[in-house]
Design a protein around this nucleic acid. Structure first.
Lengths: 191, 191
DNA sequence: GTCTATATAATGATAGAC
DNA sequence: GTCTATCATTATATAGAC
């Protein structure tokens, strides 16, 4: 029926999920259609039924990631009434994901950096993934009485995570990550 | 004469310098031989007289960067007798390079991250660029009486710089970089 | 040492059968 | 909607003239 959401979306979804993982593990540029096709179990030629270009797949991947983050934060809001607990939960991403970070860095940071160097049109969209976290972090700091510098605190916290991810990945040193996570929590508690 | 350093090294040097810049601006994978050839003013075919592969050029670029860092740090050691001044000079890299960082991130961090995702053999060598800074930073912290945690402090300082670079690049926001540089100096002075 | 071809492989993208 | 060819382009790398 015209206008109806077409079925067969499972193939589309599998392409986006496979691309999401591969863009994280191998990077956007280095991931080929063949790689995605193999991982998703879909023939190369069929991609162009759902996406008109590789950039279109990238756009879908970024939207998917942003949605996943929003969903996760909404769950945290329900689970943790105290903003301080929410911020602690945020920092716990580092230790929970330490093995992925050790191997591939941060999914947002590394994609943003790559798209920036490619002068890719979607660089701005990628940076908006950070905004989903940033706005949520700002809200928590506001709730804790830091109305004036909520934005600065949120950006600082984002940057701390990025720095830890980059160095952990460069040195393949998850022990460094764990030490820094403790320091970040200490900093939060000192506010 | 056999064993003598061959002349005509100026072409070799121009290739490495052009590759160094382009690997920073466009990334390693996205930089083609044609790009380097155009920038260096050397014919593509002539590359293989000096380097047997693109990876060989990468190796030379990493070695060049490490040498440049060592040279810079040696100059700082002469110019600043006080370890505290040396650490301040290190942080000043951020503000001095703010426009490059805004556009391309950190040369070391972004190359390391990219090579990691490419599973490139030279990832380890790239990480050793960080070591040049790290060992020098450790020495300064030791001189300031932090013998026990010099390594942790050095890694922390490296990570702070990486985080600032990544977020500054993602948001194209040099004002954030300047605020964070002030915070890092405040942290150093509080030790 | 330097250059102009050119080989070879991989990539993103298309055409068209079913 | 899904697939199998296949095209056009680009990339690294080589051969060989000068």
């Amino acid at each position: 029926m015209a206008g109806m959401a077409s079925r067969g979306d499972s193939n589309r979804q599998r392409i986006v999920e496979a691309a999401d993982q591969l863009f994280y593990i191998k990077g956007f540029n280095h991931t080929s259609f063949s790689d995605i096709a193999d991982a998703a179990g879909v023939a190369r030629g069929n991609f162009y039924y759902y996406f008109k270009s590789k950039d279109d797949i990238l756009e879908a991947v970024i939207a998917r990631r942003a949605d996943n983050i929003r969903e996760m934060l909404a769950e945290w809001d329900e689970e943790y009434p105290d903003p301080r607990d929410r911020l602690h939960r945020y920092v716990a991403i580092l230790t929970n994901e330490q093995h992925h970070i050790e191997r591939y860095g941060c999914p947002m940071g590394t994609l943003c950096t790559e798209l920036s160097k490619l002068e890719h049109d979607r660089h701005r969209d990628a940076a908006e993934m950070f905004d989903v976290f940033r706005e949520w972090l700002e809200e928590q700091f506001r709730l804790l009485g830091h109305a004036d510098d909520a934005r600065e605190l949120a950006l600082h916290l984002l940057a701390r995570g990025q720095g830890v991810a980059t160095i952990t990945n460069a040195y393949r040193d998850p022990a460094f990550l764990r030490r820094e996570a403790v320091e970040i929590l200490r900093w939060l508690d000192s506010l």
